[in-house]
Nucleic acid binder design. Structure first.
Lengths: 186, 186
DNA sequence: CGGGTGAGTGAGCGAACAATCACCGAGGAG
DNA sequence: CTCCTCGGTGATTGTTCGCTCACTCACCCG
C-alpha cells in the first residue's frame, strides 16, 4: 500500500471534468436522449475512457445529480450567510435569491427536471430523494423557519422550474405573467 | 365531398385508442426512452399503422399531452361544480381535491413531468404552454380567486408532482413528512 | 535499461429504434 | 364481376447507442 498523499490522482481529476461535462450535457438533452459519447466529447476524452471512469451511463448520471445538489446546498448556504437579518423568513428569502442566481446557468435546474423524469430508474430516484433531503434539511435548520414555510419554499421552487423548463415569457400573455409573478429567475 | 355524418370513421376511433395507449406508455418511460412500438403494442395494433395515424413520434406525444390537459381541465371543472361554497378559496380547494383524485392513476401526472423534460422539442414545449394556459385560465376564471391564490395552486401542484415522481413516502423520514404535509395525492 | 502500472484510445459488436414500403383483404360503387 | 378505397400488417433499412476489448503510450521504480 502506498503512503497516503494529498495530491489527487489524475483519474480523480478526470472524473471531476467528466461530471462537469455530464451536468452540462445531460441538462441539455436529458438522461435517455443523451449519448455517453456526447459527455465524452464535452469532456474532451474518448467514450471508452468514460466507461472506465464510471461503470455505466446510470452511474454517470447519478454522479452528476449528486454534484448538482452539492452545488445547490452550497448556494443556499452562501445566500443564508449573506442575509442581513436572521429572521427565518428573511433567511429563506436570501436563500431563494441565491438559488435564483445559481440557476442563471440553467444546467442545475434542468438536470433536476430531467432527473424527475428519469426517476423510474431506481438509482436516480434514490439520488433525487437524497438530494431533496439535503436541501430540505439544510433550508429548515439553517433558516429556523417553520415547516410550512420550508414547504412553501420548495413549492415555489418547483414552480420556478416549470416556468424555466417550458420557456415561459411575458409574450405568452397575461396568464403567463400571473404564473411567473414574483418568481425570481434571471 | 361526402355529406357530413355524425358517426366517426374507424380511423378516428383508432386514433383515440392510440392516444390513450400513448398516455399510459409515455407516462411510464418518458418520451425519449419509449419506443413507438410499445405504444402500438399497448393499443393492440401494428407499429406501421401508428405511423399512418400520426406523422411521427413527436406528433403522437403532443397528441397525448393535449388530451392529458383536456382531462385535467375536465377534472377541475367537475371539482368546481361539486364545491359546496362559491367562495374562491373553497372552489380552488375543491379543484385541488378533484385533481388529487384524477391523478390516482399516475399517468396524467407523470406525462406532465416527462413533457417538461422533453420541452427541448419545440412542439412539446408549445403544447405544454398551451395546456398550462388552459389550466391557469380556467382555474382563475372559474374560481374567481386572486392571481396570487391561483399561482399558489399551481406551485403546490408542482410540489405534488415532485412528491409522486420521486416516490416519497413517510418512511423516507421526517423531512419527507415536512414536504408532503397536507399535499393530497391518494 | 527493462519491466510493470495506469492513463487513454480506436475499432467494433450487438441490440434497439424511427421510419418506410410493398403488400393484403374486405367492402362498397358502378 | 371489377375496380377502388381504406383499414391494417410484415419485413426491412439505415442509424444510433451502450458497452467491450485489444491495444498504445508515457512514466516510474529498480
Amino acid at each position: 500500500m502506498p503512503e497516503p498523499t494529498i495530491t489527487l490522482s489524475t483519474a480523480d481529476e478526470r472524473r471531476r471534468t467528466v461530471v462537469d461535462a455530464a451536468i452540462a450535457v445531460f441538462a441539455r438533452t436529458g438522461y435517455a436522449a443523451t449519448p455517453v459519447a456526447a459527455v465524452a466529447e464535452q469532456a474532451g476524452i474518448s467514450t471508452a475512457y468514460v466507461f472506465k471512469l464510471y461503470s455505466g451511463k446510470e452511474a454517470l448520471f447519478v454522479a452528476a445529480l449528486e454534484r448538482c445538489f452539492v452545488r445547490v446546498v452550497d448556494a443556499l448556504r452562501i445566500g443564508a450567510d449573506a442575509s442581513r437579518s436572521s429572521d427565518p423568513a428573511a433567511v429563506l428569502d436570501a436563500m431563494g435569491e441565491a438559488y435564483a442566481r445559481l440557476i442563471t446557468d440553467r444546467s442545475l435546474l434542468m438536470l433536476q427536471v430531467h432527473a424527475m423524469s428519469a426517476a423510474d430508474v431506481p438509482a436516480i430516484a434514490q439520488a433525487l430523494r437524497a438530494g431533496l433531503e439535503r436541501v430540505t434539511a439544510f433550508a429548515g435548520e439553517r433558516s429556523g423557519a417553520p415547516s410550512a414555510a420550508v414547504q412553501r419554499f420548495l413549492a415555489y421552487g418547483q414552480l420556478c422550474h416549470l416556468i424555466v423548463a417550458t420557456g415561459l415569457t411575458a409574450e405568452d400573455g397575461e396568464w403567463a405573467g400571473l404564473i411567473a409573478d414574483g418568481i425570481r429567475h434571471y
